[in-house]
Design a protein around this nucleic acid. Structure first.
Lengths: 246, 246
DNA sequence: ATTACTAAGTCACGAGTAA
DNA sequence: TTTACTCGTGACTTAGTAA
């Protein structure tokens, strides 16, 4: 930790402000040993071994934990009885909540860009019955026959790379008498401009043709330009979310 | 952390061995910002503010995280793009698993003691139909008409205090023509001796009469002395668990 | 055996500066 | 603006000792 400097300001987690993360790890160990349901008997050397530090350090960390009122201690001849206080438990819960947010929140990729021209090309393809039926079936709506194109800034182009890690809805390729039509991927998203937001929309990415990475083609049940009152050059925020499709 | 000394031995969590808990907290912050699904753009000063440390320290922590191969970084003019590596993610998952064990594992209190005489008094009471019916209904079995008594050592007497924090099965008081019989509480448990273990058993604690704290009265479907081949003075371990009863 | 104090050392800290 | 270097200070460290 190198400093009690952490004690000062208002860090993100008030938790560690009082004790530092090393102490928090020590508290976690006590909790793992059952210190939550009642007093547990521990020895500094036992804690020290499991934390891989000297017993002096273990002793001091427990002292600091006690000073911060995260544990109650009673030192006896052959060890000490430790109980985690409410404050200590809530510190642990705070950490727990953070980790839950990390692992249990569906992933999101946020992309900023601006509306750009070209309702053109996409319109023809998505209207084709071979695609349209899949949209209705797998996306749950019949898209407006046209795409909203969004040009991404440099940063968003980079962030876009994370999009491919998200679960998405596959659209199969198909063919008719004359030619074949390639598969595509639809990413669930919402489009926001100012305070207004519209969803569901989907970003459609043709699989084969290597797409212009700075361009997003968006389909939606309605004409987004009307729904969100968009003109070319307007800044929009596209939130790409984890889609549910088995 | 005050030392790269942690790097050496085999600490409980190999996670923090490589980087220390301060770095882990930094990694957590990156994950919270979405570094799991793809590159996120962060600045040292931004991280520094949220961690409540100087930007130099934030810079160093990110460097250490990169050195430990927990993140990939690309430093650009106005910040850096950070992706959490598989190693980094598994470090976070390790922590997450610890917290889940703390908060999602039913609490347990382990009590060591030795078998002591006195199948006597309890026998009469638990055989009374006013109690026996509740046992059958709420415990799910009809207890052998007698209790196994366990004398607790000094340490176990202390640890016993944590038992009252556990969820338990209430047994109501009742009365007949002649007298009233008080309520009690049944704690779900198992009894182990050597490698053998028996469950379900319940520790029965009469509510009113303030019980001898060094004595445990245990009821079970069968005669435990026979099932576990117990004699007076034998050492047994009683694991008291969270009971499910609404 | 414990916990914890003191002493001596090292690493991490923040400040300043460079690129 | 950024990131990250050098540098001096100081907190945390381990080791040894006391109770």
């Amino acid at each position: 930790m190198g400093g009690a400097f952490e004690a000062g300001g208002m860090s993100e987690s008030a938790v560690a402000a009082a004790v530092g993360y090393d102490e928090l790890a020590t508290l976690k160990l006590v909790a793992l040993d059952g210190g939550r349901s009642g007093p547990v008997k521990l020895s500094c050397s036992g804690v020290a071994n499991r934390l891989d530090v000297s017993n002096q350090t273990a002793s001091r960390r427990l002292q600091r934990l006690e000073e911060a009122d995260f544990i109650d201690r009673e030192v006896v001849a052959d060890g000490q009885w430790i109980t985690i206080t409410d404050a200590g438990e809530s510190a642990l819960r705070q950490e727990y909540a953070d980790y839950r947010r990390i692992f249990e929140t569906p992933s999101v990729v946020v992309l900023d860009g601006e509306v750009t021209g070209g309702m053109g090309e996409g319109r023809h393809y998505i209207s084709l019955p071979g695609y349209m039926e899949q949209f209705k079936d797998r996306l749950g709506y019949e898209p407006f026959p046209g795409t909203l194109n969004v040009r991404l800034g440099d940063d968003a182009v980079r962030a876009r790379a994370g999009m491919t890690a998200l679960d998405a809805v596959p659209i199969d390729g198909w063919e008719d008498d004359e030619r074949t039509f390639g598969p595509a991927t639809c990413y669930a998203a919402s489009v926001a401009v100012g305070g207004d937001s519209y969803e569901p929309v989907h970003i459609i990415v043709p699989e084969r043709t290597h797409h212009d990475e700075s361009q997003l083609e968006i389909i939606a049940p309605d004409k987004l330009r009307d729904e969100l009152d968009l003109d070319d050059g307007d800044a929009v925020t596209v939130r790409v979310e984890e889609a549910e499709y088995e």
